[in-house]
Write a protein that binds this DNA or RNA. Sequence first.
DNA 1: TCCCGGAGATTTGTATACAGAAAATGCCCT
DNA 2: AGGGCATTTTCTGTATACAAATCTCCGGGA
Lengths: 217, 217
Amino acid sequence: MDGSEKPPRGSAAHRVEAALLEEIAAGGIAAGERLDETRLAERFGVSRTPIREALSRLAAQGVLESGEGRGMRVAQYSREELAQMFEAMHEIEALCARLASQRLTLLARSQIEVAQAECKAAAEAGDLPRYLRANEEFHLSIYRAIENPYIFEIAADFRRRTGPFRAKKFADAGDLVASAESHDDLLEKIFSANSNIAAEGMRQHMAASFLRVLAAN
Amino acid sequence: MDGSEKPPRGSAAHRVEAALLEEIAAGGIAAGERLDETRLAERFGVSRTPIREALSRLAAQGVLESGEGRGMRVAQYSREELAQMFEAMHEIEALCARLASQRLTLLARSQIEVAQAECKAAAEAGDLPRYLRANEEFHLSIYRAIENPYIFEIAADFRRRTGPFRAKKFADAGDLVASAESHDDLLEKIFSANSNIAAEGMRQHMAASFLRVLAAN
DNA sequence: TCCCGGAGATTTGTATACAGAAAATGCCCT
DNA sequence: AGGGCATTTTCTGTATACAAATCTCCGGGA
């Protein structure tokens, strides 16, 4: 929830939390999969106590949930739930585009352009992991341009939660190239100095993306 | 983080979490104040373990933070940070009003009206704790009308975090009455079936509120 | 007077044990 | 074969103990 500040409480618990979060975001632990405290304790070489703390924190952040039966599971979303999350994300992304367009500094613009250049390079190389990282950085750089950490955090949180589902829409290298090209269209609108055009451009960009995600999930 | 679903993990830990959250939101524990595990354990009649779990979860939600020195403290915000949070909340609230206006069912409208009636009754009784609860419920009922749990959660989260600061704007019973009356104006706009008027109405309502909050903090 | 170091007190993080609840398994009867 | 009940196993939540880290206070020296 915090950006960058002081080390959070507990080093083993924190290490476990961060590792699990990264693994879940990359799709390494599937939605619905159960996390076993005892096995995780063995895996990380600690007692159950810091494991429970890490799991509990991830649950408080909505990454895990107590589902049917025992144990924590990676939060699962039905298609309907996924669609609702995308709808919320859709609104937040449009808001971000509008605000970014209103507040854009030359420095922020330059950073967005650097991020887009990396997207293009990764797409041309047909390198999916690299593209996924670059794509996230591209969108995060737009959120940063708003210069409000709370808005940044909301948008970044959606990215974190939907990451595993969104990754599935890229079937081949052509998809990467098309995605990177759609960024160009989007940036034209964000840089147009018309915040309504920016918001509408982001709506279209995200709608196209979500339709592909729903098809792939 | 969740609205209403299954009982969250842990009954003592959960009870403590909920009680602390309510107390913090009502301003009963001040921003920056340190929470002592041992004393809380005595107070709630449990061991440190569930206390630690509750505190850890509240930290994951941004309500508490590990600050300078030992222990968890209620999260503190500078005026600048508070203003940024309000700016973000302002945008989210306007978005909520717009969507609620677009999606309002008769049932949802009725529930909002019940909540507003309770606000008025509490204001007329000059009962601050009752008013604070009623005011929260009023706003939550608007978010519920959107029927998207993710948007609900974002807006509710801001309410949770800003609760202690917002509570300080009510200096006397007249403030309660004025606040309840401003809800009438707001509802007229939300019920107007014009989502732009609804959004603008909420912007004004929240801006007035934030200016009073900044003055009081 | 001020600063530093050491000792004691306090707090934090974790490991382990225990009790209770939930789930799984096995057995018996229809 | 299927269902119900009893028993066993597994998991969850919590209490307690311990070690390490941090904080506070006091005394001594410059």
